[in-house]
């Protein structure tokens, strides 16, 4: 038996919105420690990894490890039926091919039950190495979203350059070029407004902006975003999911042919 009850159901709605454009089908892995998911986009350029720890749920029970094959489009449709203030409960029997979703309004006067068919998925899981990065940049998530959106009008690629002075995002295309520089700003009143840069070695990498724009669908989950980079390895874009977990997006760089 698997059962997970989340009082702040809007978090699950936001997580789903942050995943659905990148991943069409994914295996949601349920263990006693929590829910996790790892999936690549269809072109195998990016990978997303979600962790929601068991202790973040008001009630969590998982008697046996379960891999639920989920069509993300269907999951989105059903989660859209939940109100933003609803409590969401997920339930599945160990051998069932269905996931039950229950949405309770805050005062309990409305209870909706949905059932979603699960799929048999043969997902390839990749081992993500735990590594140190040359640069870690924390910045307001809405600023990162804005930069990605703005520069995607200029070109298809963004060059991210991180030095001790700051981080620079540049794009160029047929009509011209654009550059946005963010400098460290430790004086901001709110922690989410701070820009912090930790660097052991300067880094310059080039990425396809369309993937970064998809990652920014997670913006509403967290006030800040962390970018981790080292030369010649995938970029990590991490959003916290309150104090219960995270979504990490990995994006392979463009390399010289």
């Amino acid at each position: 038996m698997f059962e997970a009850r989340l009082v702040q159901g809007s978090l699950l709605k936001k997580v789903q919105e942050a995943l659905k454009d990148i991943v069409q089908e994914a295996s949601w892995d349920c263990t006693s420690s929590g829910l996790s998911l790892q999936a690549m986009d269809g072109s195998h350029v990016s990978l997303v990894q979600l962790t929601l720890r068991a202790d973040g749920f008001e009630k969590y029970r998982c008697d046996r490890n379960l891999a639920m094959g989920i069509n993300m489009g269907s999951m989105s449709k059903i989660l859209k039926c939940a109100g933003n203030d609803d409590v969401i409960t997920l339930k599945a029997e160990d051998t069932s091919d269905r996931l039950e979703l229950m949405f309770e309004s805050p005062k309990g006067e409305k209870i909706s039950n949905y059932e979603m068919k699960l799929m048999d998925l043969d997902c390839e899981q990749l081992g993500i190495p735990d590594q140190e990065y040359s640069c870690s940049i924390k910045m307001p998530s809405h600023e990162f979203a804005r930069i990605c959106r703005d520069l995607s009008q200029i070109g298809e690629c963004v060059v991210i350059t991180c030095t001790k002075d700051g981080v620079q995002f540049s794009a160029k295309g047929d009509m011209g070029s654009g550059t946005v520089k963010m400098s460290q700003n430790l004086g901001a009143e709110k922690e989410d407004d701070q820009v912090t840069i930790e660097m052991t070695e300067p880094v310059q990498l080039t990425f396809a902006i369309k993937y970064l724009n998809m990652f920014t669908k997670a913006t509403s989950l967290s006030g800040s975003v962390c970018l981790s980079m080292s030369n010649d390895v995938p970029l990590v874009v991490e959003y916290k999911v309150e104090d219960m977990g995270h979504i990490k997006y990995f994006l392979a760089p463009k390399i010289e042919d």
């Binding site: 990749l126 690629c157 990995f250 042919d257």
Partner: peptide, 14 residues
Amino acid sequence: KNKQASIMGFFSKK
């Protein structure tokens, strides 16, 4: 000219 790398080139299969 830059070429898009695959994420699978960086992470090993489990």
